[in-house]
Lab assay of single mutants.
Amino acid sequence: RNRTTFSTFQLEELEKVFQKTHYPDVYAREQLALRTDLTEARVQVWFQNRRAKWRK
């Protein structure tokens, strides 16, 4: 699988949710996936990576 390149819009949407919660539930991830045209799995992995970055 190739690396996912996120658009500016997608990143803004993802970051917006991350500001509210670092652990969105499955429903929130599904909604975000639909809004950003990503799969729920991509959204989940983005949050994992974003939390790792945030901890540093």
Rank of each mutant, 00 (worst) to 15 (best):
D25Q: 03
R50I: 00
L38Y: 08
R51N: 03
F9S: 12
S7C: 07
Q44L: 12
T39R: 03
V45K: 07
T21E: 09
K20L: 14
Y27N: 09
L14F: 04
R50G: 01
K20V: 12
T36Y: 03
R42K: 10
N49C: 15
K20P: 00
L32W: 07
R55K: 09
E13M: 03
E40A: 08
F47N: 03
K56D: 12
D25T: 08
R51W: 01
R51F: 00
Y23D: 05
K53M: 10
V43T: 02
R3W: 09
V43C: 00
V45Y: 14
F18Q: 01
W54K: 08
A33G: 09
R1G: 15
R29S: 05
P24E: 05
T21I: 04
Q10E: 03
R35S: 06
L11F: 02
R29D: 01
W54F: 13
T8E: 11
R42H: 12
R42V: 14
T21D: 08
L11K: 06
A52P: 01
Q48F: 04
E30K: 07
D25A: 03
R3K: 12
T8M: 06
E12V: 10
L34K: 15
E40D: 10
T4N: 12
K53V: 12
E12A: 09
F47G: 00
T21V: 07
Q48H: 11
Q48D: 07
F9C: 08
N2E: 12
E30A: 13
Q19R: 11
Q10K: 02
A52Q: 07
A33T: 06
K16E: 05
E13V: 03
A28K: 03
Y27Q: 15
F47W: 01
N49T: 07
F6C: 05
R50Q: 05
W46V: 00
K53I: 13
W54I: 09
V43R: 01
W54V: 10
V45T: 13
R55A: 14
R1S: 12
E30L: 08
V26L: 09
T36K: 00
D25G: 06
Q10H: 06
E13P: 00
T8G: 10
F6V: 09
A52D: 11
E12I: 03
K16W: 05
K53L: 07
A52T: 08
Q44F: 10
V17R: 02
Q44V: 07
R50W: 00
P24S: 01
N49V: 07
R55N: 11
V26T: 14
R3M: 15
W46N: 07
R29I: 03
F47L: 04
T21A: 05
Y23T: 06
F47A: 00
L14V: 00
E12T: 11
R42A: 15
V26I: 11
L14S: 01
L11M: 06
A41P: 06
F47E: 02
E15I: 01
